[in-house]
């Protein structure tokens, strides 16, 4: 069964000088799926999530969450969703403890019975490693810790569909990993459909069953993270662990049979080629002759490569 359906959604902001934030969005997310929304800043991910979470009105098109129309059955949609907005780490009561905050939101605003709310707070806190922080005032938490509380709040009432807008933005890598592992398991155990926006490619690879890539308000890819990488980077890559090859050596490598392009990114040099396995021995020879002994390997295209590919409108980011 499809939990989220978008049919031709578009959204314009402003009056005379209106900006089209979303343009003909068609999307389907299945029940229990962990779905990622990817795209560069300003692509329209948050706008789409806000429309689905009944916070924003689409200018046209239709959308359904859990079978309910987000425009006509707002209240029904709100009964089955959870939501953690972007930059919402200040959005709780500063002088209440984490426990009191979560209890208030779950019991008063989400109608979770008292005892169940208390049990779930304990359970989720211990799964995330927050059991010793529950009685700390919200104001005394770090930005990342506050963000974790906001994520906990979003799932505390076991929603059918949960929208998380960049939930790991201010989290350190260890906490981020713990939170996403917990979310993945919790969503699976409780059959929660999760719709997540993120720029964290590791997060996408680890938790997302499928993703949609949005650029300039349009969905330009829908599929699994693996399909995303494959569709974007159809060439193979040889990776050399240095970015100090110099022009001469770069030119020599370009002359190796099968090498199509050479790029430098961070501390690595990437050689794009048709057949990495065949080109590798000759590349190693060129390096040896140049007296450069650094690790050389065949690399898998990364999600970042694919991301850059789609942001550039399908043109490969191979030059520099």
């Amino acid at each position: 069964m499809e939990e989220i359906v978008c049919d031709g959604i578009f959204k314009d902001y402003g009056g005379k000088t209106s900006i089209r934030a979303l343009d003909q969005i068609d999307l389907k997310v299945s029940n229990g799926e962990f779905f990622g929304l990817l795209g560069p800043n300003g692509a329209g991910k948050t706008t789409l999530v806000r429309i689905l979470a009944t916070l924003l009105k689409a200018s046209g098109g239709c959308a359904w969450v859990g079978g309910y129309d987000v425009n006509k059955d707002e209240k029904k949609v709100r009964e089955i969703i959870g939501y953690a907005g972007q930059d919402s780490e200040r959005s709780a009561y500063f002088r209440l403890s984490i426990r009191e905050n979560l209890f208030y939101f779950a019991h008063a605003l989400r109608d979770v019975p008292k005892e169940i709310a208390k049990e779930r707070i304990e359970y989720i806190a211990s799964a995330i490693g927050f059991e010793n922080k529950l009685d700390r005032h919200f104001i005394s938490l770090s930005g990342g810790e506050k963000q974790v509380v906001i994520v906990m709040r979003a799932i505390l009432h076991n929603p059918e569909v949960c929208f998380l807008d960049e939930p790991s933005k201010s989290l350190d890598p260890i906490t981020a990993r713990r939170v996403r592992c917990f979310l993945k398991d919790y969503a699976k155990d409780n059959n929660i459909t999760i719709c997540l926006t993120t720029h964290n490619m590791l997060e996408v690879e680890e938790v997302c069953d499928r993703i949609a890539f949005i650029n300039r308000g349009r969905v330009i890819f829908v599929g699994t993270p693996l399909e995303f990488k494959r569709q974007a980077v159809m060439r193979e890559i040889i990776e050399i662990s240095t970015n100090r090859l110099g022009n001469d050596l770069s030119l020599k490598l370009l002359k190796v049979h099968g090498i199509l392009n050479v790029t430098c990114q961070n501390n690595t040099t990437k050689l794009y080629c048709e057949d990495a396995f065949n080109a590798l021995p000759e590349v190693v020879n060129v390096m040896r002759e140049a007296g450069l002994k650094v690790p050389v390997r065949i690399a898998e295209p990364s999600l970042e490569d694919a991301f850059a590919f789609f942001v550039n409108g399908g043109k490969r980011d191979e030059g520099h």
Binding site: A53, L55, G82, A84, G85
Partner: peptide, 16 residues
């Protein structure tokens, strides 16, 4: 206050 802190996003997705 809720608009400033962003809490309104959460409260306005609640069913009342």
């Amino acid at each position: 206050g809720e608009l400033g802190s962003g809490q309104i996003d959460y409260t306005f997705t609640c069913p009342f």
